[in-house]
Nucleic acid binder design. Structure first.
Lengths: 235, 235
DNA sequence: TAATTGCATTTTGTATACAAAAGATTGTAC
DNA sequence: GTACAATCTTTTGTATACAAAATGCAATTA
């Protein structure tokens, strides 16, 4: 079992929020695996708190779609199926397009500058080859665009949807051959926003998602095949 | 204070879900007003349960955006501002467009029939003049389209967003002059889906939202003016 | 040997208890 | 009458207790 996640007592938050963040993190990084049961006493002991904050955290994870409740049996980490991921991506495609369109209208001069810088930094990051650095630069870039929309609800939704794909982030970033494409796609998006060309921006954003989709779906199929092989061996 | 909401003990659900549904309903119907505090013991006594299920229900309402948490002060019903509503509508516009586009591709023959019937029934409902009947027919019609997308995530998101505007549903339905427009907009959407014309469908869906937006925003401004007048009088 | 029943254990669902923080109230001094 | 301080109340945050359901296992029976 993936061990040693602990509560971060530094933060001055209600325990339920600390637990919520901790569990979410554990699920997104794959430390808690799909299908794994979340048992309250167990988690409570492990995190050194009582069951109450654990339960409240689980209620929030439930609504976020990261855990599934089974009546009288408790929570387990939600399974990701290819279908559910395609559903998420289908929505993200539309919302990302909306994002860049809104950004075309509302982005400030400072944000444009920041976006340009983020593009350069992303390119630099790809040259380091370090996956974490690249992922960080990618998040930073997208964050600027999302924030530029000024639409709080949209920001919240996109963040939540991104979360669902978090486990696969690294996979499509690992693929070195794709780096030039990613850099180009980012540049394309930046330029369209710079020019205020909504149509072009939306197309670029959709293309960007489509490419990620291909890469992620490929990854999922690969994983599933490997799991099947393992099963075969056991039999 | 808006009185007598009680838990519905018929349903066989964990108390937290019963409480969740009860409170949500109360908020959406306006029985619990924006800014009103949700005090745990008070609610617990009123609903005849202990604080635990109340707290868990509040955690879910929090993530749904229906209540706001103030640290060490508890929950209160989220305030709806014009900005927050515009944010919601901006997102809905994109997602409704996505909905009808997907419906164009995926709707089954039976669903097409049902949609046609729903259009007719909506028209019939407008002629009764009964607001509840009209609202019901409207929901039924939109439900068919949303379900036809087959995208669970999208269905969930649209339902949640609709929720945020629930309090204003009646207002734009009350406006009798708009009924013919609504009927026509529905027919337009139906026909585009029938023909599988995504572009036309998306345009129709967006127009539909735009008109609702106008009507809702007008309503909000009216409400705010009335509140200001009341305040003036008191001073 | 297979199936089933009964018991023990685990785990959730709910209620309650207690501590600490925030808020209201009262009283006193100026 | 106002300002400030002390105290009392309310309310949240957290922990724990208890009941009921589900699960697993062993023993018994066909």
């Amino acid at each position: 079992m993936g061990d040693n996640f602990t509560v971060n007592m530094d933060e001055f938050l209600p325990l339920r929020d600390v637990v919520f963040n901790t569990l979410r993190r554990a699920i997104l990084t794959g430390e808690l695996k799909p299908g794994e049961r979340l048992m309250e006493i167990h988690l409570a002991n492990r995190l050194g708190v009582s069951r109450t904050p654990i339960r409240e955290a689980i209620r929030k994870l439930e609504l976020e779609g990261l855990v599934t409740m089974i009546p009288r049996r408790g929570a387990e980490v939600a399974q990701i199926t290819e279908k559910s991921l395609q559903d998420v991506l289908e929505v993200r495609r539309a919302l990302d397009a909306l994002c860049v369109e809104l950004a075309c209208d509302r982005i400030t001069f400072e944000e444009k500058e920041a976006l340009k810088k983020a593009c350069d930094e992303f390119e630099a990051a790809t040259r380091t080859g370090d996956v974490t650095t690249i992922a960080g630069a990618d998040v930073a870039l997208h964050d600027i665009i999302v924030q530029a929309t000024g639409n709080q609800r949209l920001i919240q939704l996109i963040n939540n949807l991104s979360e669902q794909m978090y486990r696969y982030r690294f996979e499509y970033i690992k693929d070195e051959k794709g780096h030039d494409n990613l850099v180009n796609e980012h540049r394309m998006i930046y330029e369209s926003i710079q020019q205020g060309d909504k149509k072009k921006a939306a197309e670029a954003a959709k293309l960007h998602i489509d490419n990620q989709e291909k890469s992620i779906i490929r990854q999922i199929r690969l994983e599933r095949e490997q799991q099947l092989k393992k099963k075969d061996k056991r039999q």
